[in-house]
């Protein structure tokens, strides 16, 4: 097992999604947290408190910039203005990592603020690869692409998700972000085996892990329908999948994502501590 530094530079340790209400706690005692992730779009203003806080944090922690608005899976061209904003942010912040999603969110200049699904076909594969190429060229850095949470299937899909992601990485040189909660959510919703997904995932390409919470619902037939919400603690089946992942991969930068109904700092720090224990146990 390789004890590698994850590409392109996040420490193989726990991180958390940064929320402004945790600023003071993080600066005083970050506990097990060694790095932070921000949503790029929240730091694209010209100045003010968000940028000032980010400058302070970046002096102390490696930062991962995670985009939620680039619409890499969109049918239309990428938004050049948005790509320029992203480049400006990466240029001054010099983050340790940049990642985005296998999803679309913009259509005809309308931004729909959700990670919308796409079918997996040769046509969509070529389009996503062109967009990833454009992002990496414009930013002058390698990016990580994240596996989505999906709720439905496309009749026209004729490639598997792992095959699709692997081929993107192979054609563009990008890395992958493996969201283990998304694996649990998608595999439950598609009624497939999440352990098999983890075992088949191209683990050497993974630069970062995401862990988060989800909501539970049912579909019209009464089958479980899990919804990615980042509003709860990580559930036990996801921790087990995470341990399985780390056992295969060795230590990897691992993010606790909690974006809605954000808890007080000690609750989030406990989740990071649990990830730290698994990282220690598996690598001991």
């Amino acid at each position: 097992m390789l004890d590698r530094q994850t590409e392109p530079g996040l420490p193989p340790a726990p991180g958390v999604g940064y929320k402004p209400q945790h600023f003071t706690a993080l600066m005083q005692d970050p506990g097990p947290v060694r790095w932070l992730e921000i949503h790029a779009e929240n730091y694209m203003g010209e100045g003010g408190r968000p940028i000032a806080q980010l400058r302070h944090l970046a002096e102390r922690f490696p930062i991962s910039v995670h985009g939620v608005g680039l619409s890499i899976g969109g049918e239309g061209p990428l938004d050049r203005d948005h790509l320029d904003r992203l480049r400006r942010l990466c240029d001054w912040l010099q983050p340790a990592s940049f990642s985005e999603h296998l999803a679309w969110s913009t259509h005809d200049a309308e931004f729909l603020n959700d990670l919308l699904p796409l079918p997996y076909t040769e046509e969509t594969l070529a389009r996503v690869c062109a967009h990833v190429d454009e992002v990496q060229t414009r930013l002058g850095r390698k990016m990580l692409l994240e596996n989505p949470s999906v709720y439905l299937d496309f009749a026209e899909s004729n490639l598997g998700e792992i095959e699709f992601l692997s081929e993107i990485a192979s054609r563009t040189g990008c890395g992958l972000l493996l969201d283990v909660n998304n694996v649990h959510v998608s595999c439950t919703n598609r009624q497939t085996d999440a352990r098999d997904y983890i075992d088949r995932f191209p683990i050497d390409l993974v630069g970062e892990i995401h862990l988060g919470g989800h909501d539970e619902d049912v579909d019209d037939a009464g089958a479980p329908l899990l919804i990615d919400s980042h509003a709860h603690p990580v559930v036990d089946p996801v921790w087990q999948l995470y341990e399985r992942t780390i056992s295969r991969a060795g230590p990897l930068a691992t993010l606790i994502e909690w974006d809605n109904d954000v808890p007080d700092w000690p609750v989030l720090a406990d989740e990071a501590e649990r990830a730290a224990r698994i990282l220690d146990r598996v690598t001991a």
Partner: peptide
Amino acid sequence: PGLTDPQGRPAGRRFNVYRNNV
């Protein structure tokens, strides 16, 4: 059209997750 559940039936409530999220 063309959105389904794992058995190939129409996606139904599954599509509404996206509607609701947006």
